[in-house]
Design a protein around this nucleic acid. Sequence first.
DNA 1: CGCGGAAGTC
DNA 2: GACTTCCGCG
Length: 728
Amino acid sequence: MKTPGDTGFAFPDWAYKPESSPGSRQIQLWHFILELLRKEEYHDVIAWQGDYGEFVIKDPDEVARLWGARKCKPQMNYDKLSRALRYYYNKRILHKTKGKRFTYKFNFNKLVLVNYPFIDMGSSGSSVPQSAPPVPTGAGTHFRFPPSTPSEVLSPNEDLRSPGGMFSSVTRRMARGSVSDCSDGTSVNSEIEEGNTGAAEERGERGVSGGGGGGPGGGGGYRSIIHPRLSHETLFRMYGGPSNPAGHPGSRGPAGHRIHQEPLSPFPVSPLPGPGGASLLAPPLSPALSMTPTSHLPYTPSPTLSPMLGSHFSFNPEDMKRYLQAHTQSVYNYGLSPRAFLQYPNIVIPHPHRPTPDKERGTAERAERAATAGGERGGERHHHPSLAHSAHHLPHHPHSAHPHPHSHPMHYPLHLGEEPPHMSPFKFKLQPPPLGRKQREGQSQNKPRQSSLSSGSGSMSSTSGLGSSLSFGSDLSSASGSGVISASSSTQSLSSAGLPKIKVEPISDIESEEEVEVTDISDEDPDERDEDYEHFSLRHSAASDHQQPNHRLANGTSAGQHQPHEEDLDEDVFKAPAPPPPALMPFFTSQHPHSSAQRGLPAVKSEPAEPGESNTSPSQTAATGAAQTKCIPLKLRFKRRWSEDQRMETSQEESDDKKVRPEEERERGRQSNGCMEMEEDGTGRGEGDSPPPLAYEGSLGTPLASHQRVSAELHRATAQLSLENKDC
DNA sequence: CGCGGAAGTC
DNA sequence: GACTTCCGCG
């Protein structure tokens, strides 16, 4: 069951970030739930189960009690708590797993975006921002619950940010959490907070954790202790975290909880990939990712994962920064709001469990698993298979130029400042979005994959990393998370259906590291999807020409996948949030575990969002098949996309959905103002805010400047891409 | 058990 | 805004 190291980490830090509730000071129920989930102590009461993000309340009364204690609402009961939970449905934070009693599922996407930016950029690499929701460790960016675990406190993200800044923010949050505690000793908070140790629950300890008191101090303490830049792994180790599942797998474990084996991590089965396990390196990918069932995709992409061998593999902070800056608005803006997702609908968050049979993945995963040894549990924690792969592969990569030995080649691009635009070695294969079904049907089979897109030399990538990344920019970026990019553009018209998903994979790990394939994977049906999705589709169609012929195409491969609404939704929900911005793309790429499987390349694939288990194969197919590859006017796409994004940022029009929308818009408004999510923390922001630090080479002092700069880069990249595509 | 409206609280 | 409380409905 639990993972050994789990102690705390079920979700990625970012998951804890309070997405929408900037204002809310009090602990929110979902945070509380997450907190409980991450603590082994409460596994008998509530635990992860089943799909990614899915959890079961084993003891409703107890959970209610705890919640009541936390909120000082003695009268709390499950009925009331569940009502509160139901309110999350509309917010898309949570949804009910139908047919399963007391079982709910988190919608990480919603959360992700918010956190995204911060996702570990840090060395830690926690990397997994997007996709892996559940990154185990949790260093949450901003907010964490009461800081329970040191790890959290330490969260890489924060580290990345500025030590100080993050800190403060964290502390604050912590403080908040603690504050909220009810006076009574029983307060849950305290219990939770203690979590670190786990056992220690109790209240007394709080101080130690710092949660209670206060904040800053506590947080600071941890921080001080740990170097900001420590890799997650390190942290994990410290905490017993992810990386070494092995270490603990058994430890905790009680076997079982009544309900599940799952440990803390949301991903049920995550297997940690071995590599990590093995070494420090092993990045703590989110288990989820690794786990991801195949059904969707192999989720690949986490941006961060870059394979760096050595150091952390996660994102480079820098990259993240760039990304952030670049997308400052876009991403941030999109932030939590569902819309954000809309933009990046394709991104899928992998489900932990569903194993996919994919051929491709299988390979990679197997290897990983093997490495992991076993552990599913281990897997959960952090290892991302992909990482492992990437790591392994990297060495092989010819990239001589690599500045960072560790970093994945993909990263290169990132260093825009330094590198000339063309430098980048990457080659991208672009696969055009799937043709319309009809086309697809006709062609799909025929086409094996056209890798053709790849420009011969990968010129694409060329542009500076940035370029490449940028190119993917908005649209792609979205994909990035999962690795999937929606290529909105497919010329074909998709119709409302949706965007096709495109995969961007680095194609050769070994061979040419840099190539990236972009495949259209989309399979989703907007309809099924949440409103957001719908919007999404709308947007695309309207905004871009992109309409793609069919989403279905993607589906096509995966088409079979429909699942019931719920699942679909779920799936959708879980889809990875925004893709990493262009800059990030590389990261994503590298990370891809599954994709890598194919070759071991670090590729980013986006899998169909669809959860449908059925998909798995299809999706893979799609991925692999990529057959669809076609030449797409990427340039146009990107450009448009970019334009749109910007536009969007500027004006938030959008159709709305239900309730959600309002929120989104609001958020946007705020964000647009320039505020990042972080800001509130204020402290956090200032200090740590990564963005600044990230700035491209610092050239961008201000976000705006950076943003512009990014835009420029993007355009440039786009142009190059277009050139590359010309072949087509 | 689960849903969601309605009203109320903080 | 985020619940909490109550309640009717399936």
